[in-house]
Amino acid sequence: MQREVASAGGAPASDADPVPRRRFSGRVLLPAAALAVMLAAIFVLQPRAMSYNGMRLLLGFSLPLMFAAMAQMCVIAASDIDLGLGTYIGLVNSLSALLLADRPLLGVLSLVGCVLAYAGMGAFIEARRLPSIVVTLGASFVWLGLALLVLPTPGGASPAWLSALVRLKPPLVPLSIVVAVLLALVGHWLFMRSSYGVVLRGIGSTPQAVRRAGWSLLTARTVLYGLAGVFGLIAGLVLTGLNTTGDANFGAPYTLLSISAVIVGGGEFFGGIVAPVGAVIGAFIMLLTGSLLSFMDVSTDWQLSVQGAILILVLGTRAFRRRRA
């Protein structure tokens, strides 16, 4: 533990440190192996899933979840937690379905406003030294309230370009897999390779060291929450495209799903320890539990329990490995 804190918190130069690189790959290997086993099981149980169309359908709803996981990871990188992400996604879903098709300018402005509000929330948390769990929980009611205000009953329509975009059928590989690879690469570069990424992870582990090295904590947390706002925005837009309409309540489950995806994918609640590639893999794992149970003819009433069990198993395994290390 001490070693991780030191490596993440050391000045930007520590990017060359071999220790976090090794830890990182170990973090991602476990969820990657788990996902491979799940996919193998799905293919054995339901050979139809192995086709292009099968994969496209099975992974259709991975798009919003992987962006939600990436958004949540940005917040978790600061050792914070975002309990408002799901309703924020619902707000974006509602706003984009209501405005984007008919009044594009107003729609874009309102969505930019959403991202700014998210960045502002990060600044507020840093400036007033408030616990994120309380601020984001409070914000979750604000997002939901705003969403219900603009769209009291489900409705609206997705702009045609958005629906077409999320239903794109690239040759050979379904869209969700293409996007997942791109998102994982972008996330990996942003957090693991860029020099500012070390600062972003650093405020989650040893903020004093980051400040002493001359970086502004206020800026860093604002950037992290702003990034979360952007990824959450994309998740909401993708949902609008997939569902073709808006529903203020639709996004809510994404709060807990995104947290689970980050943790299952190798992230930790504290210490600025996150794995962008793992978060994307974690999103797939969370998504496929339902399909796997369905193919096994196990009642989906077990889905929540199984997702919870996976989470406990992952955390348990990690604690066990840490003790042996």
Partner: peptide
Amino acid sequence: PEQANHIESLIV
């Protein structure tokens, strides 16, 4: 979202 995912599984 969970239900949407279930329906996609049923299609497959």
